[in-house]
Amino acid sequence: MAQAAKPSRAASAFRRCSNVSICTGTAPDYQGRMIGDTPAPAPAYAVEGHGLVKTFGSFRAVDGIDIAVPAGAIYGVLGPNGAGKTTLLRTLLGIVDPDEGHRSLLGDPVPLRQARAIGYLPEERGLYPSMKAFEAIAFMGALRGLPLRVGRERARTMLEGHGMGASAEKPIRQLSKGMAQTVQLFGTIVHEPRLIVLDEPFSGLDAINQEKLEALIREQARKGVTVLFSTHVIAHAERLCERIAIVAGGRIRFEGSVSEARDRLRPQVRLRTRSSDGAWRRALPEDTVAQEGAWHFALPEGGIEPLLRALLDGQAGIESLSIERPGLHDAFVAIAGAAAARQMEEQQAGEQGA
């Protein structure tokens, strides 16, 4: 008699989670809550950490961090590789314990007790290559307590809604990198978590898939879900986030809104004049530099009106004048330093060239 074929790791794992009570030890409802549980009042902050320290040998990956993520917000942790972003997220989630300090997740001081209410996409991606796309999504939901039948239904709906219905039956190995990452993201949110944590979610995605991911993040936020993500790409944080934490060297260098970060620098003035010299030159601020046929300087604290009068009275001949508010990139350089900004730009360039 022929020996039966040995089941694959994916098939074995999938069967182990076919009965959710085996995977989780108890029976959840469709939202992943325990049947009979009385929902606790929603906390003002979905994630909190106070005085967090995490060391590896003599290296302090997280060095005394305080952080508070408002419930329902899109919150970005921004910084270069090695800044401590991943260790911070893992510490907040309870994957690793801090050496000092304390944290709470959805109001619970023991983060792992809230595992079912969280969707976590780690920086290291991983899916069973032989598993079909819709089954992979359902499987990830089952690990968070979602019945497989419900997960399969939601998976097909999600794939069809994002133009990937034809890929539902394809094994992961046949999908492009962007599509596989989308499948893993769907698996992260299929159980409808209250908090989504994404570690470098844009890494390795082309521009089109990055835009799709941004749209999906906004869609989750509109539903009231809290989204916490780390990134080394300033543009994503500037477009998406209501609040950010700029991290460098294991410490938070700035925490607040994107607007507050940009307000740390004065607006920049760009002035073109027909005349290149005259008494009016004395009215230009001390930080003025001539570049590409224009005068560049920070907006004077007294405003632009006194300077305009001096230019007009001195017949400088104003050709153009623009006042530009600094972007988040300029603020990041001022807060974390030019070296950190260059490291992030080099990392992004390396990913685009890969």
Rank of each mutant, 00 (worst) to 15 (best):
V233L: 15
R218G: 01
V227K: 00
R239H: 14
E219D: 14
L213S: 03
I189H: 00
A237S: 09
K223T: 01
H236Q: 15
M164R: 08
T231S: 15
K212Q: 13
M164P: 10
A168K: 09
Q174I: 07
R144A: 10
E192L: 13
K177M: 14
N209Q: 14
R218N: 07
S167W: 11
A207T: 14
H232F: 11
R222I: 04
R149E: 14
E169L: 13
I234G: 04
K177C: 12
S176N: 12
E211Y: 10
A155V: 09
G178A: 12
Q210K: 08
G161K: 11
T157G: 05
E238H: 13
V183R: 07
G178H: 00
V150H: 10
G204A: 05
I234T: 06
E160G: 03
G145C: 07
G145R: 02
A168H: 06
E169W: 05
V225S: 02
T188Q: 01
V233I: 15
L195A: 09
E160S: 12
L148G: 02
M179C: 08
F229C: 08
A155Q: 10
F186T: 00
K170M: 15
V197S: 04
I234A: 09
L240S: 05
I189S: 00
S176R: 08
R218D: 02
N209A: 10
H191W: 10
G204W: 01
Q210V: 03
L240I: 05
L148C: 10
L148N: 08
H232C: 11
V227D: 04
I196V: 15
S230H: 07
I172Y: 04
H232I: 03
L213P: 00
R239F: 08
R154M: 12
V150W: 06
E214S: 09
M179H: 13
G224E: 06
G187K: 02
F229Y: 15
G178L: 06
L213N: 01
E200L: 02
L205H: 00
E153W: 12
I234C: 08
A168T: 13
L213E: 01
V190C: 08
G165F: 12
R154N: 10
L228R: 06
V233T: 12
A180I: 06
G161A: 12
L159A: 07
R173C: 09
R218M: 03
A207M: 13
E160K: 09
R154D: 08
T231Q: 07
Q184S: 07
R218P: 01
L185F: 15
L240R: 02
K170Q: 15
V233D: 11
A237Q: 06
S176Y: 12
P171Y: 04
G165H: 10
E160A: 13
H232R: 07
L198T: 05
L240Y: 03
A237I: 05
A180N: 09
S203N: 13
I189E: 00
L240A: 02
L146H: 09
T231G: 12
Q184C: 02
G145V: 01
E200A: 05
G178T: 05
R218A: 05
P193I: 05
K212R: 15
Q210N: 03
E169M: 13
G161I: 12
R144V: 02
E153P: 02
G161E: 14
D206N: 09
Q181I: 10
L216C: 01
P147S: 11
T226Y: 06
L185Y: 14
V183W: 01
S167C: 14
R218F: 00
G204F: 03
Q210H: 03
P147A: 05
R239N: 14
